[in-house]
Write a protein that binds this DNA or RNA. Structure first.
Length: 512
RNA sequence: GGCAGGGUAGCUCAGGUGGUUAGAGCACGGCACUCAUAAUGCCGGGGUCGUGGGUUCGAGUCCCACCCCUGCUACCA
């Protein structure tokens, strides 16, 4: 059994979870569930990034300690993920003692293996208050930051520890050359190639004024203790989650897949690989950078999130419907827009009318015409079409070219469309009136139930709870989550006792 | 400013190496059916393929210019 260790970005603990966070976790969960159905031994990691100035500030504003603050925020996030049926196996927090120990060990290991990689330097440069960043020459036009031309730049000095990123320039070039699949999708890879072509610079990895941070383990020349830069603290979570530095960390590491937002690509594809290489630790196999969701055309952010809560979106049609909609509507390799209108539209058209109703009519006919027992029947073109399309379904989801979740859903949904067409054209209700056509009716009923069962498996990564519910209504044995893709071809529903339950996806009137 | 990608039906998008009447889903209109969540199926209307040139027997598909949009432009989580 192949191991599949996948991770999501850990979320920064300075606010409540919103739909933007949810998109990534739901997508990652779909991939995790897909791998389980493919037979992999999956380990799915998520977590929280809890250090940094902004967390400290937010805690101060509420008059609570940073730890109390992040404890509350983390609980809120974990609660949200539970409501969305996210199947993570582990939830790491950067304030966990084990994580702090791991980061310290990693830094010490880099220092031990490559003592030259850390050095102290007084950094001075133009600081843009708008960006809250030091700006480079090529980002300054007419003495002002290109992104904030109305602000004055400030000349600032600070003595920090630096990481010699420049030493890994050629290593990274070779990585991207030899392993084109390391970063996907292609557009993100091109951006990193452009960055490498431009040439890297060393990065400062400590902050002198940072109190809410992991203390940097190396002693400064002036005796001052500095806080570790948040990313040098956050990125190693993927490694510390495996138990690093305990030897057993090799049982999980290296990760097969890091799932991140496209905005933090360079941290994961330049800084993180360089850190691992400096520590002489194996690199993860692949990084997938997904796009973002907009709301009403606006970038989904804290401010837009105020428009509605994650819970409101869940309450609309249920968690499964939200999961389905986000992954169906927004391409996982790019950006997409969320709107209530589209949500209702897809819910009614695809989940209620197409799929829910196909299940409803099929189960009702088995009950009415065969006393609820699925007859045995011949294979039909419906089976053949579904099995033929499996190739495309897997091509979209198995990672060989990337993770095109939207495409995978489309392939599964095509089976639903064929099912409805098949029922309509074979007119089982007419066959039922003619006793001489009993065998034909058996063929039709069994074919449709088989198709529904296959749909349960194919859609399970996206719609986990409802597929289990339909599986039960079909009278199928066991659970969907225990099925395997390679069992689909031989799937047979003969003898199953169907039980019609409540509508899978009740149609809702268009509101708003 | 630089680099990259994109502008195709009301909406979201497909359209390898140029070639018959430019496609899909949703939405809209008509018809059929009754097993089903007034659901489903079939048919149909609808597009100057961003703008202006060029190459070619022929361009949405190649070349040039321009307009517009988006992303990236390292230590913001």
């Amino acid at each position: 059994m192949a191991r599949f260790f996948l991770t999501t970005a850990i979320d920064y603990a300075n606010g409540d979870p919103h739909l933007g966070h949810a998109l990534e976790k739901i997508g990652a969960d779909a991939i995790a569930r897909y791998r389980r159905l493919a037979g992999d031994d999956v380990h799915f990691l998520m977590g929280m990034d809890e250090h940094g100035q902004k967390v400290k500030q937010a805690a101060d504003e509420e008059g609570v300690s940073p730890q109390a603050f992040v404890d509350r925020v983390a609980a809120t996030f974990e609660d949200a993920w539970q409501h969305l049926d996210i199947s993570n196996d582990q939830f790491i927090r950067t304030t966990d003692p084990a994580h702090k120990r791991g980061v310290k060990a990693l830094i010490e290991r880099i220092h031990e293996k490559n003592p030259d990689d850390f050095y102290e330097k007084t950094y001075e440069g133009w600081y843009c208050v708008g960006c809250e960043l030091f700006k480079r020459e090529n980002e300054i036009v007419d003495g002002r930051c290109v992104l904030h031309p109305t602000r004055e730049l400030q000349w600032t000095e600070e003595r920090n520890w630096f990481f010699r990123l420049t030493r890994y320039q050629s290593f990274l070039e070779r990585l991207f050359d030899e392993r084109p699949e390391f970063l996907r999708p292609e557009t993100r890879r091109n951006e990193i190639l452009a960055l490498l072509a431009q040439g890297l610079e060393d990065i400062s990895i400590t902050r002198s004024r940072l109190s809410w941070a992991i203390p940097f383990p190396l002693r400064s020349s002036n005796g001052e203790e500095q806080g570790t830069w948040v990313w040098f603290d956050a990125l190693p979570n993927y490694l510390t989650a495996t138990g690093f530095p305990d030897k057993s960390y090799r049982e999980l590491w290296p990760a097969q897949l890091h799932i991140i937002g496209k905005d933090i690509t360079r941290l994961h594809c330049v800084v993180w690989p360089a850190m691992l290489q400096a520590a002489e630790i194996a690199l993860p196999q692949q990084v997938w950078a997904h796009g973002f969701m907009t709301f009403g055309g606006e970038r989904f952010s804290k401010s837009a999130g105020v428009a509605f809560s994650l819970q409101e979106a869940i309450d609309r049609h249920g968690a499964d419907a939200l999961r389905y909609f986000l992954l169906r509507e927004i391409p996982f390799d790019g950006d997409g827009d969320f709107s209530w209108e589209r949500f209702d539209e897809r819910y009614n058209a695809e989940l209620a009318n197409a799929w829910g109703n196909l299940a409803s009519r099929a189960i009702a006919m088995v009950e009415k015409y065969r006393d609820g027992v699925v007859p045995s029947g011949e294979r039909t073109p419906l089976d053949q079409a579904d099995l033929a399309e499996l190739v495309e379904y897997h091509a979209a989801l198995d990672g060989s070219r990337g993770y095109f979740l939207q495409e995978g859903i489309k392939r599964a949904l095509a089976s639903v469309g064929r099912g409805n067409e098949y029922v309509q054209s074979s007119q089982p209700w007419a066959l039922a009136k003619d006793e001489s056509k009993r065998a034909q009716l058996d063929d039709v009923l069994s074919a449709v139930i088989r198709a529904l069962a296959r749909q349960c498996v194919l859609l399970h990564p996206f719609v986990p709870a409802k597929t289990e519910e339909l599986w039960r209504q079909l009278g199928a044995p066991g659970r969907v989550s225990d099925q395997r893709f390679d069992g689909l071809a031989g799937l047979d529903a003969a003898g199953w006792k169907v039980r019609k339950g409540a509508s899978l996806f009740p149609r809702t009137p268009n509101e708003r």
